[in-house]
């Protein structure tokens, strides 16, 4: 326990000091991406890992956050306000989709979220087909540093929420709902409101990550953040690292980006294939991901020491 606290503090300190230590922007850029993906995966994990509800349309919330933030920001709205508006839009969407579909058992929630994401993507592609460029006045002042610290703040906030889920009444209630919603109800946990609140938190942070993406990227198609690949990456990262664990999505994000950069050098399409296969294997054969593997190793070595 104490060792864990020390390790986390050290890593946090290193991340805070990194811009001063790393001379080259591409290192900082890489870590920025790891933080962004880590935050997005962690936001999926809040509901998918801790709450057991499979959201297949996470990109919708990421995309909506980015769309609203980008549009407002480029229309002279101050960035903090634009970020808040983007986050609020994603959260509101979460309530609208979550309220009907989380009431039902079975696959309705997964279907509902997938449908919403695709329809938003197609509609955005139809209605706003242009590339969104940062105007030259914005480009002149562009620096990676504030984006980096925003990402660090975001990942810390969403990970704090994940940590809170492991040691709060609400977190225990949510775990009970994940395990068996009927039993949870029978011991006093209102299953629906727990799922809905977890979903709202999840879409809130996904929207924020989308806003950060809009603030970060110089030029992209507005439909791009709605692409289902964002959902897939969030799922892959979460499952690789360990769904329903606090550190899994962060470990998974680091690993994912390392692997992607290595693979993408030579095998542009193949890396998607490999990720797809890895994902299916993890779900089928090793649902606990890295963190579970690590824990299993740790307890085994503890036993052998005794």
């Amino acid at each position: 326990m104490r060792g864990q606290v020390v390790a986390v503090s050290l890593i946090a300190l290193a991340l805070v000091l990194l811009p001063a230590l790393a001379p080259r922007d591409n290192v900082l850029n890489w870590v920025f991406l790891a933080l962004l993906y880590g935050a997005l995966a962690q936001s999926w994990n809040l509901l998918g890992g801790f709450g057991g509800q499979v959201n297949l349309g996470h990109a919708a919330f990421f995309g909506l956050g980015s769309l609203v933030t980008r549009t407002l920001w480029l229309n002279q709205v101050p960035l903090p306000l634009a970020l808040v508006a983007g986050t609020a839009a994603a959260t509101a969407m979460g309530v609208i989709i979550g309220a009907p579909s989380l009431r039902l058992r079975g696959p309705y929630f997964a279907i509902g979220t997938l449908a919403v994401a695709e329809i938003l993507r197609i509609t955005t592609a139809n209605a706003l087909p242009e590339v969104s460029f940062l105007p030259t006045t914005y480009l002149a002042g562009y620096r990676l540093l504030p984006r980096y610290y925003l990402a660090l703040g975001l990942v810390s906030a969403v990970t704090f929420v994940a940590w809170w889920l492991t040691r709060s009444r609400f977190g225990y209630g949510l775990a009970a709902v994940r395990e068996d919603a009927d039993v949870a109800e029978a011991i006093g946990v209102h299953a629906f409101s727990h799922k809905l609140l977890a979903f709202v938190l999840s879409s809130l942070f996904a929207g924020m990550a989308g806003g950060l993406f809009a603030y970060y990227h110089v030029s992209y198609y507005l439909q791009f953040p709605f692409n289902p690949i964002w959902t897939f990456d969030a799922l892959l990262i979460t499952f690789l690292g360990g769904a329903g664990t606090v550190w899994g999505p962060l470990v998974g994000a680091g690993f994912f980006l390392l692997l992607r950069e290595t693979l993408a050098l030579r095998l542009v399409e193949l890396h998607l294939l490999i990720f797809g296969i890895v994902f299916v294997l993890v779900v089928l054969v090793f649902p606990g991901g890295f963190v579970a593997a690590w824990r299993a190793l740790a307890t085994r070595s503890e036993r052998s020491l005794q």
């Binding site: 209630g173 009970a176 395990e179 949870a184 011991i187």
Partner: peptide
């Protein structure tokens, strides 16, 4: 609640009952 410990099974009920 299969993947929760025996303690946590009881704890949830204690927290919500």
């Amino acid at each position: 609640l299969p993947n929760l410990t025996a303690l946590d099974n009881v704890l949830v009920a204690r927290l919500y009952g």
